[in-house]
Simulated scan of single mutants.
Amino acid sequence: MSEISNIIKKIMGEEKSKLNEIDFSGKCLASLLEPDTLEILQIDSLEDYEDEKYNCYPYIRNIESTIAIYYYFTDRKIKDIELIALLEDIKCNYEKEIDSFETVLQQLILRDVYRYAVSQPIMHHEFKLVIDYITMSIDNRSWLRDKQAYLKWITYKEDLLSEEEEAKYFKKIERFFKKYDIDMDLIDKLWMR
C-alpha cells in the first residue's frame, strides 16, 4: 500500500477512503482544465476580481482544506515557506502526472483538485490564479513571525483544533497583538471562520 493511501485512510477512515479511490496513474490535472480566454489572461490577481474569485472559490476552499487536514493529521512540522515552494511547484508543473510529484501533500492537493475539476473545470490561468491567491494568503500572515502562521490559521479556520488547541492559539495571537499594540478588535476580523 502506498504512503498516500495510508494517509488517506488515516484521515478519512477505511470505509470513506474506499469511496474516494480513483486510479490516478497516468492522470494529470492539465488534461481537465479548459483553454484560457483572452479575458481571463488579462487578470493578474483574484484579489481585484470578485466574480472570478467567486468562480474559483471552490478550488481555493478545496486546496486550503486539504492543506489544513494534512498539516493537522499528518505533518505538524511543515512550515509556511515549504508550503509556498510546494504550491509553486504545482503551479509550474501541473501538466505532469499527479503521481510524479515528490510529496504526499502535493499529490493530495492535485487529487482533490482533479476530483473537483471532473465536474467543475476551470481554465489553466484560473488555476494558476488560485495557487497565487493561496500563496499570497500564506505570505499575508508572515508578519506574525511564526513559521507556521498560515498553517495554524487555516487549521483553525477549518475548525480542526480541539478547544484546548484553539485557546492556546488565540492566547498566542492576543499576546502578539498586545506586544505590538495592535487593536484587539482586529483579531475577530482577521481570524473569522
Rank of each mutant, 00 (worst) to 15 (best):
M1W: 10
S2L: 13
S2G: 11
I4H: 03
N6R: 10
I8P: 05
K9M: 10
K9F: 04
S17T: 06
K18V: 13
E21L: 12
I22Q: 04
K27I: 09
S31C: 03
L32K: 04
P35C: 04
I43S: 06
D44S: 12
E50Q: 04
Y57D: 13
Y59N: 10
I60V: 15
I63S: 00
S65C: 07
S65F: 04
T66N: 05
T66H: 02
I67A: 00
I69P: 00
Y70S: 02
Y70E: 03
F73Q: 04
T74A: 06
R76Q: 12
K77A: 15
K77V: 14
D80S: 01
E82N: 14
E82P: 09
E88L: 06
K91S: 09
C92D: 12
Y94F: 15
E97P: 00
I98C: 09
I98K: 05
I98V: 08
E102F: 12
T103L: 12
V104I: 14
L105K: 03
L110T: 00
R111N: 11
V113I: 13
R115F: 03
A117P: 11
S119F: 14
I122F: 11
E126R: 15
F127S: 03
F127K: 03
F127A: 01
V130Q: 11
V130R: 07
D132F: 01
Y133H: 08
I134E: 02
T135H: 08
M136P: 00
S137L: 02
R141G: 08
W143S: 11
R145Q: 14
D146P: 00
K152V: 01
I154G: 03
Y156W: 05
Y156K: 08
E158H: 02
E165V: 13
E166R: 12
E166D: 04
A167V: 09
A167Q: 08
Y169T: 07
K178D: 10
M184R: 13
M184L: 15
M184C: 06
K189T: 08
K189W: 05
L190I: 03
